[in-house]
Design a protein around this nucleic acid. Sequence first.
DNA 1: AAGCCGGGGGC
DNA 2: GCCCCAGGCTT
Length: 347
Amino acid sequence: MKESYEIAQPLLAWYRQNARDLPWRHTQDPYAIWVSEIMLQQTRVAAVLGYYARFLTALPTVADLAAMDEDKLMKLWQGLGYYSRARNLQKAAQTVMADHGGQFPQSVEGLKALAGIGDYTAGAIGSAAFGLQTAAVDGNVLRVVSRLLDCHHDITLPATKKEFTAWIEEQLPPAGDDMRQFNQAVMELGATLCGPNAAPQCAGCPLQGQCLAHSRGTAEKLPVKAPKKPRRKEERTVFVLTCNGKVLLRKRPATGLLAKLWEFPNVEGHMDETAVAQQLQSWGITPVQWQKRLTATHIFTHVEWDMVGYCVEVADVDALPKSWVWADGALHDHAVPSAFGRFVETL
DNA sequence: AAGCCGGGGGC
DNA sequence: GCCCCAGGCTT
């Protein structure tokens, strides 16, 4: 470790004056910090705040989470995305209860052994909850370090992350209260002054004097990232089938996109009304009144759904296909992903 | 190393 | 449109 803290000292001083007031910064409860870190993976702070408060109210302890009904858990997570996070969260909670007596492992290695906790999250929890001397390198940190070092290596490469992690490790303060805040401080800088979109606000930066990108005028060109591949498009036809105030839903497969969430029945391709009628017939469903045709697009990271939807009042059905249910129109008990939001609005 | 996995806000 | 976001898991 470095014997001087040329980065940590000014950074921590700035952080203590300028840190945003975020709920997970008021606790040292590893459970609450863990929940926040999982929710924050690839997700903005603003999007997490409401979910976080509601989640901890519903499930205040790791024991509550471990025992939660899975469908209700998915309903709590509905709309937040990356749903495997929620399932891994519960799996890890059950591991903590079964293998660790309800107490969180207090080492980086122990944390990393839990489902859904990788390098970044183990470091973030270990430092914030236990004051461990460990790095936590996320997208914010990669951006900040690339600028501090004026390093033009591709930050999507594992080698670059290792390189930056090693540099951060040289800057760490000793274990304890400073470490509880150090990783938060680097990320805070990356989330506020040293952000990705607008030009970095170097004038107010506590590390301006030590930033090579600033002194060389390259800050706005960093970080360097490899271009991403184009996403594919899928055309689907969605069936919003209602009967006596109920709507027909089916459960998605246990793996893959939107696993285990509920959806309106849908098929590949764009159908006209004639084809839709035939499809309904093949399901043994009798249309009573055709109500609406509408289109919707939903963009995922690697695929785009171009959907046409048909809202049809149908007669009651004798034998429903497996995993299909009549759900109450408010969808109170079924987690339906945002991709179907335009169709949910019609209910 | 590359692909998969959501959703939304900012520009 | 395109960017990115307090990433992790799988192959």
